[in-house]
Design a protein around this nucleic acid. Structure first.
Lengths: 370, 370
DNA sequence: TTGTAGGCGTTATCAC
DNA sequence: GTGATAACGCCTACAA
């Protein structure tokens, strides 16, 4: 009654004595073992999990429960996936796991998935757009129940839901052209508004927005657009320029900073707004090269709040993204969809948080020499 | 001949006209579809993948190949896992994904896995040791072919291979008590030797090793031991102390630094060795609090080479870990095991790289006032 | 309420 | 060489 777990792996032969018994004992108990131990059919055990109280008599249920506990039985997700279609797996595709933002999102998403009983399958594109399609296919072949995509979408324009193999997806930080899916991201417009207004109110009148190549990345485009709009709305007293850092060389960057510095001679005060922490790092390096000081020679506000922001010069003012929340929210949205939610595509824009440090000190004295 | 893909989902009935045809067309083709299209049996198609040229006549093989291409057939890993036992899945358990080191390793491992055709299932413990067991169980229930573990192992001492469900595992950075598995890590002894020697040669005579709680973390213990040993080997002219930063409060840290500073009055020059980038960050913050300068007031060398190391003060000297290689090596070791390698537990210790920056400038003038 | 049987997509065994 | 067929572990009609 205790351990009647023998598994005749051989199809026809009954008891091939050659089979090592200890090997069989390594295997996890199956639903058949539980059924045998409880003296019921496999279907009944299955029902215990899927329809519990719905259609099971109390005494049988308790017998099954006891057998399950005694054998330490756990259903095999693989078998369930094959049969029932659902795998309790979530596919997470990241454009570039080198980006700290992506990692932070991953962390939040993984946490939320874990809590909901889902496991995360990770696929890093290494910034190779070509691989997105195959990444999704690979994940889909494992029957993932849904996707979390932090990618740019296919290079050749429209990304159709067809390539998603009929499974729900939620986009993080980057929209896909033509893909109507839930979207979770920082509220770029509002965040940029906060950043610019903070600088302008502090007396910085000449703004420079530094960003990675806008290419087709929606978040970069949105921030750049919001920047220009914000500057324009402040009238002629405030100037703004957008510069893309296209390559790894620092020529463009240094030139842009020098140009900004020259304006100071003309009474204007120049400040940099950085599109993300990758750019911020390069700006900080450039400042060291030029021998300039944040806050004194130029003002600075950067998107993302890396742990080292307080340690650079007088401290870098930043717009912190709620990365963990973004990841968690994405996972939650996806799980709702997987549970059948049929609402039209939703948009969750989470607020950024301005963290003021020394790099953006107000220029009270310099403010319009009255 | 083109699309004869009909799937009678109903068990007994032959052609239930009620079945929506479009639904069926969404499904991916199965091995049966290919078999039908090629006019062969399922077994033959299966053989095409698993035993290719071994036992298939050329003409049949080409017919199968054509059918596969035409239908865009891809085998289902889930079904393969159920039948054949292998899932081409690798379970990666990380103690704390907040740690940049873990992320860097993850990156390398995921890359290597992808190249070898494996997908990574991620599980983050969030520094909760209790969850390691259930993490492994959860991963095992998905039939992962092997584990990459960057964890401390079970709290109650010995971690047996039994809990690994018979699958191979490779340990990264942290050994598990009693677990004889492949181990991949930085060569802590050599790296610490390099760091200490560099400082001592530069004239820094009073060394302080700051580390996160040693607890049972093998890498921390090894580094601390190597530190003490290295200092001892340099005779009475060199002093060394190890301090654990047990909590988030900065009292212990600041006190240790102040004590180090006082030694300077007595002619000794104090330098800090930091156990990892987390500690380095705290040290940098403390230096700002105290108003001290790296290189001038105290020397510094830190394990890990975060991207911001060049930007702190005169630049922080570091021992860079080959994180990507560590991850890749771990994945490779694991894959070898999964392919049947039976050798005894291996140990792969990768060399660190000393990156000299301003924080450890040689004190030529201060070197033994001769 | 419970048991029986067929199928999910593959692989492996056994005949032909 | 190739084709049936029985597993793998589970779920779900359908029957009882």
């Amino acid at each position: 009654m205790s351990s009647s777990r023998s598994k005749p792996r051989a199809p026809t032969a009954k008891a091939p004595a050659a089979v090592p018994a200890d090997t069989a004992s390594r295997d996890r108990p199956t639903i058949a073992d539980v059924a045998a131990a409880a003296g019921v059919s496999k279907a009944t055990v299955s029902r215990f999990f899927n329809h519990r109280e719905r259609l099971l008599s109390p005494d049988i249920a308790s017998r099954v429960e006891a057998a399950i506990a005694q054998l330490g039985y756990v259903p095999s997700p693989m078998a369930q996936a094959l049969s029932h279609g659902r795998s309790r797996l979530i596919g997470l595709v990241v454009a570039d796991i080198t980006n700290p933002f992506s990692v932070a999102v991953l962390r939040g998403a993984e946490e939320a998935c874990q809590e909901a009983g889902y496991l995360v399958m990770l696929f890093n594109l290494g910034n190779d757009r070509e691989r997105e399609r195959s990444a999704i296919d690979a994940l889909a072949s494992y029957q993932v129940d849904g996707f979390i995509l932090n990618t740019q979408g296919p290079e050749d324009g429209q990304s159709d839901l067809g390539s998603l193999h009929g499974r729900p997806a939620v986009l993080v930080d980057r929209r896909h052209a033509g893909l109507e899916a839930d979207f979770v991201s920082l509220d770029n417009r509002a965040a940029m508004h906060t950043a610019c207004t903070h600088l302008i109110d502090g007396g910085w009148s000449e703004l420079l927005y530094l960003t990675q190549p806008l290419a087709g990345v929606s978040s970069r485009l949105e921030r750049a657009a919001a920047f220009s709009q914000c500057v324009a709305s402040h009238g002629p007293g405030v100037q703004g320029r957008v510069v893309e850092l296209r390559d790894a060389s620092d020529e463009v960057l240094d030139a842009a900073l020098r140009a900004l510095g020259k304006k100071r001679a003309k009474g204007a005060r120049g400040a940099v707004v950085s599109g993300n922490s990758v750019v911020t790092l390069r700006v900080a390096a450039a400042m060291a090269r030029l021998g300039w000081s944040f806050g004194a020679d130029i003002g600075f506000v950067g998107f993302d709040d890396p742990e080292w922001a307080p340690l650079i010069g007088p401290g870098l003012t930043t717009v912190a993204q709620p990365t963990g929340d973004i990841g968690r929210c994405a996972a939650q949205c996806l799980i709702e969809r997987m549970q059948g939610l049929q609402a039209p595509a939703r948009e969750r824009l989470l607020p950024g948080r301005l963290v003021v440090r020394g790099s953006s000190v107000a220029l009270v004295a310099a403010k319009k020499p009255a």
